[in-house]
Each structure stands twice: as C-alpha cells, then as structure tokens.
Design a protein around this nucleic acid. Sequence first.
RNA 1: GCGCCCGUAGCUCAGUUGGAUAGAGCAGCGGACUUCUAAUCCGCAGGUCCCAGGUUCGAAUCCUGGCGGGCGCACCA
Length: 599
Amino acid sequence: MDASGETMSLFKRFREEVLGSIQALQAEGRLPAGVDTARVTVEPPREASHGDMTTNAAMVLASPAGMKPRDLAGLIKIRLEEVGAIREIEIAGPGFINMRLDGSVWHEELAEILRTGTAYGDSDGGKGEVVNVEFVSANPTGPLHVGHGRGAVVGDALASLLAKAGYKVSREYYVNDAGAQVEKLAYAAYWRYLEALGDDVAPDVIDGFLHDTDLEYRGDYLVPVGERLAREHGTDLVGQAVDDWLPAVRAVVVDAMMDLVREDLSALGVEFDCFTSERQLVDDGKVDDALAFLEERGLVYTGVLDPPKGKVPEDWESRPQTLFRATEFGDDVDRPLKKSDGSWTYFSPDIAYHRDKFERGFKLMINVWGADHGGYVKRMQAAVKAMTDGEGDLDVKVCRLVNLLDGGKPVKMSKRAGTFVTLSEVIDQVGKDVVRFIMLTRTNDKTLDFDFAKVTEKTRDNPVFYVQYAHARARSVMRHAAEIISPADLTPEALATATLDRLTDSAELDLIRGMANWPRLVETAAEAHEPHRVAYYLNDLAAQFHALWNKGNDDASLRFIREDDLPLSAARLALVQGMATVIASGLKVFGVMPVEEMR
RNA sequence: GCGCCCGUAGCUCAGUUGGAUAGAGCAGCGGACUUCUAAUCCGCAGGUCCCAGGUUCGAAUCCUGGCGGGCGCACCA
C-alpha cells in the first residue's frame, strides 16, 4: 500500500525498492546526489530464464555516476539483497540486475487478483487528469459504415483504457451539422418530402426540382424523413424559396440522422458523454471568437497560396485568402480559414471547437479520425497549439481502412448498386462483441482485414474465439468443481484464502507471472494510446492457460481438480478463477462480455 | 513534387516506447483424445527486421539519405 491507500502494482513496488537502494547509496556518498532516475525501469525480462524481474538501473545511471555499469550493479545488488521477497540476484550482460522472487510474491499477487476482481489493473498513473476522446464524429448524413465502426470501437476502448489507467475521460462526438454536406442532405430530404406528398404534388414539380439540383444521398433511408416532413408540414413547404424551407428541413433531417447514428452506436455498445453541435458553436459566436483570438496574436493574414506542386487542380486560380499561420506551429503551409466567397472553411469551426474543448478544461485531447483525414492532423495540432498558447496537447489516431472479406475474397460493395454493407448489418451478422474485438486486433494505423468466415470460426487463429474459450474453459472447471467443493468455498474471496503455496509447478507460477503483467500493460498501452495491445495480451494469457490445461491431459497429477487433495484443488481453482478474472478485466476494456460457455 | 502512414519468417502480424540469443498464429512436417469441452496442446523447420550511413555501453525501435507500397494535397467535411 502506498500513502494514498491504493495498492501498488507489483513492478512499481520493486521499482521503489531499486530506487530505495539508489538513495541509500547516495546517502553514503557513493553515488552523486540528484541523478535522474526517471529512466530506471523494472520489468520482466524478455527471456524468462533471466528471472522474474530485471532492472536497467546500473546501465542508466553508470554514466552520470562516473562508474562502470557492472560495478554500480554490484553496489545496488548488495542493497537489494536485504529485500526479503527477493530470493536471488544476478548481474548479467552489460549490467542488468536480474532478480528471482520468492514464490510467496506470486501467491500473494494471485490472492490480490481474486480480491480485486476485474478492477485488477486499475492504476492511478493518469493522476485523475481529464482527457477528451473525440471519435466517430461522422457527418449525420446516413447510417454508419464499417470504417466508422472501427473508429467507434478504437475510441471507446481507448477511453476505457485511459479510465482504467487513472484518467478522467470524456467521450465526445462532434456533430457536423452546419456544413455543405448537411445542406445537400436537406435537399435530398426535401425531394423525399415531395415524393411523400404523392398526388398532392404535380410530377413536374419533382422533375423540376431534380433537374435543378445535383442530388446526393438518394438512399432509401431518407424515405421516412420525407414522410415525417409531410406529416408535420403538409404541403406548406411546396413551392417555397429554398431559404424558407431549408432551415426546417435541415433541422428535421439532422435530427433523424443522429437518431440513426445513435442507434448504430448503441448496437455496438458505444455511448457518449457529450455531443457537440457545430451549428451551436456558430450560433454562439464561438467561431468569430476563435478567429479574433488568432487575429490578436497576429496569426491571421490575407495571402496567396502556391498551387500544390505536381498536381495542380484543373480549376486552380491564384487568389488572396484569409490564412492561418500554421507554419509557425509546425505545419507545412499556412491554411485557409475562409473560402473565396467569404464564408468559413470547415477548418474555422473546427478550430473553435478545439478551443471550446480546451476552455471546458481539457488540456489532453485525443481525436480518432478516418483514413481520409490523415492530411489534416498537422494543421489541427498547429491550431491547438496556437489556440491554447502551447498548453493544449492533441493526439490524433488515424484509423486505416477495413477490408471486408468473406473466406478471403473481398466483399463487393457499391453504393450505386445497393450492395453497400453497413455497420449494423455486420453487427447483425456476427454480433457486437466479435466486431469490437476484431476491430482491436490491429494497430489503428494499419489496414484491417475483417473476414466474415474467419471471425466466426472456432479455431486457434480466431482471437475472439481463442480468448473467450479460455474464459469459458475456466468457468467450466469451476462448475465441475462445485460438484465436490461447496460453492461457498469457490467464491473469489474464499479462493483468495486457499493454501496458494501449494502452487509450485513452473507452468502454474508462469501463469501468475502472466497475470501480474496486466497492470503494467494497462499503463503502457494507455500511455501509448494503443488499445490493441490489450488484444495481444489477452491472446498470450489465453495461450498460457490452454497450455496449462493440456498439461493436465498429459499428466493427471497436474489437473486442476484433484478429488484426492482438496486443498491443492482449491489452490489451483484460485489460479483458474484468477486467470478468468484477468481475461474478464481485459474484455471489459474492450466492452466485450466474457462468455461462460462456448456451446 | 510535398506531407503523413506502413515495410519484421512463404502468408497475416506482435515486439513492453533504446535492452540480453527478434517472437506468435497460419501454411508445412511429426506427435498427444477412456478429458476439467482435443473447438486444445507439444515438438521440428522457417530471418540481410527494405537498403546505406549516423547517434551509444546497446538500435527492429531514435536521426539523416535513399528504395518500395498506401493515403492525402486551395475554394468538401
């Protein structure tokens, strides 16, 4: 326990021991005071034969101490030998200090896992700092597609991961309800409205409307919106000037589309804390405020941009524009804030939006964007730096494409041909938990193959199945155990008090070592903003468990349930339940339910 | 042309943010089912970590320059 009463993770605890020995050496004058220990790590060695824990302290501090790494390691070793939990210390290679721990350390850690439940791995590393995770933020122009789904899952899992790591997280969705796309959407809704009125509208009115507008968003999903407009407005909007019907139609259609989006998100199990409307920002004058802020700092000017080299647009013409000095903050060129007609580019409200986030208290901001927005990262980061006088920090996770496959063959998709696969269709077909897990099996910046055949397969190379199977197997063991052991003795609390020192087999202790890595993984993955690491961790832990299970197949004395030795059984069941708990803890980050059985 | 991302076993990818002899799965070969679900496991084989320099005790990882692939590039979000 540390001063705050929180339980300190195992590796942190031993890092404290290492730092303590360094301080002792400083007190003795054998090490200069004030050396920076920030780079000192205590972690499991890559090679298990090197021990349970290793520290780089001697190598990192050798140069500032003016000593050879191995000599310094020798001094630290003498100190560490006084720590009871350390059974053996070895200096190896260039100056690693390898430690073997007493078995009791692992037994206690297992008890700790059982007592803590899925909260195991919770950390205070984030120190309660608030962080804003903005994701999806799809234009409200239709149902979500699979690419949005990836962003939704990555953002949601990242938010959960950060929360677990001790950050105070807000999940946010930015509603682009003010741009040209929404206007086009309103036109399409108006067309559906005219259609819905049927005989009340002369056919040539509809033909004329279609003839005058280059209509997008012709999908069926706007039909109900047209009907709703017809119900609410009758024929009132027919024949009116665009400016008269547009605001009303736009409001209704955006509302309907956001309902659609929310429905898709809820099918995926994603919930937001906050929806911010672009239109609201505009109406509140926040865009003007933001630009005024930049102007005060001399970051806005009227200038002429060079055409992009190598690829000059057909209709390129040199003209003066209102520009933001993005180059002062690391961008490649200054960026336009206004279009040639004087209206804002999408960039201006976006700047205002990020300023708004900052003013709401978020210094740390993470945006999850689609692949097509990769080119806007630098300018947005530049804008954040400018708007916050360098205090704000924006990280952008760009999600690469999702390839939909079926048995290795691409699923052909065409909006025109109506064979476009939506997110909700995919969820209907394989279930939300499968979608969520698979979306997290790759780094966000690599394309991801989503193979319908593979993700539902019950084989080793389907990570969803493999991880869930480990959990289900563990739960199956517990069910069997209940036949010979009283259920009261099988609760996690009861198992935590079992004679855990009966766990002596190396594979058993290895499994606890694997479980003890979970808190470290949470911290490093959260720090790196990389939720996919959890998927690999879970896969590894599941593999360890499946291996242990099969040892019981080869050697009956290693089975979890031994009717001839109930205390040993209890200890092993504690191990099994602990493993299931850690799996459940990881799946919780992903928003995936652990299953009790596979059938 | 410029910017961003990627390049690791035949294939798909990890790699604990600079650590020790670079790891998994699939595919290939050889083994383990009177079971707590063998839907799994064990073993073998498989590598110029794209190339060339640099930084240092130490580089797949950081820097520079190339090569190859993807995406983006005023007035769409």
